[in-house]
């Protein structure tokens, strides 16, 4: 399966203009014969919507969202948007679309409020981790901060997910010898998850500035051995493709199959307690 990483800069608060950019990237990914294209978190609108959140939010059944989903006739599509449900609760969501239809929506579960973040001021948290199939791969979606939390990964591992897709909006803070210091952490985390849990991870970050907040890019794909298959450049829009090969996963699982010695009683012990 060929995955295209669409590391774009959304045009802030401008759904129409940003939709055109999505269409353009979808076309390019089709030309590169990708089976699925992944856009970052909140790719249709930008991230810090603040007081404009209610007017930018769309319902899962809206024409606006269906119009985007129609771009998935020739290629599967994952894009990000602010969602509103029938009870006027707002979510940071990513939709997986295939054959012109929305197949699955993941709502961001872990909403950061530390430092520069304020997700939970405008958004409610999602609560479900559901899997979906694409190109014979069992997939799961996490959005940005979701990936920090082991329990989200463990939940997908229990569901035998083979590839976790993580649309993100990770901003720059601290610059070290390698450039964006946070990237080292993200890379260690992604490679570690992929290697330890024997799965592929597709991580797509955005680029561009919002009031000085710099989203630095560096999207990547890690394989079940913890290798980085591709990494997008820092600070530039780009479209990169990676081949995700079931045979690699098979080879890894032949070498070491942790599923055999997993103990659900320990998972329950670790994550079964009350919320803090």
């Amino acid at each position: 399966m060929k995955v295209a990483l669409a590391q774009i800069e959304p045009i802030f608060g401008n759904w129409e203009a940003t939709f055109l950019k999505h269409k353009d990237y979808v076309q390019k990914a089709i030309e590169q014969k990708a089976s699925v294209i992944v856009f970052p978190e909140m790719s249709m609108t930008g991230y810090n919507l603040k007081d404009r959140t209610p007017e930018m939010c769309v319902n899962a059944h809206s024409d606006k969202l269906r119009e985007v989903a129609r771009q998935s006739m020739q290629i599967d599509l994952i894009f990000g948007f602010p969602e509103v449900d029938e009870n006027y609760r707002q979510y940071i969501s990513s939709a997986y679309c295939s054959k012109g239809e929305i197949v699955h929506i993941h709502r961001k579960i872990f909403l950061p409020i530390n430092g520069m973040f304020n997700d939970s001021k405008d958004f409610s948290h999602g609560s479900d981790l559901k899997t979906f199939e694409t190109d014979n791969f069992r997939m799961g979606l996490l959005i940005c901060r979701d990936m920090w939390h082991d329990e989200a990964i463990v939940s997908y591992v229990k569901k035998n997910v083979q590839c976790i897709v993580i649309p993100s909006n990770i901003p720059l803070r601290n610059v070290d010898e390698t450039g964006p210091a946070i990237h080292g952490f993200v890379e260690r985390m992604i490679r570690g998850y992929a290697e330890r849990n024997s799965l592929f991870i597709v991580y797509v970050n955005r680029v561009g500035f919002e009031e000085g907040t710099c989203f630095y890019g560096g999207s990547m794909v890690a394989d079940p051995f913890g290798n980085v298959l591709v990494q997008s450049p820092f600070l530039e829009e780009s479209l990169l493709c990676a081949d995700i090969d079931m045979k690699v996963l098979q080879r890894k699982l032949t070498t070491i199959h942790l599923h055999h010695d997993r103990r659900d009683s320990i998972v329950r012990d670790a994550f079964g307690g009350d919320e803090r």
Partner: peptide
């Protein structure tokens, strides 16, 4: 009254 400066372009 929380609006990003970028809203100026909308």
């Amino acid at each position: 009254y929380r609006l990003m400066k970028e809203t100026g372009n909308v």
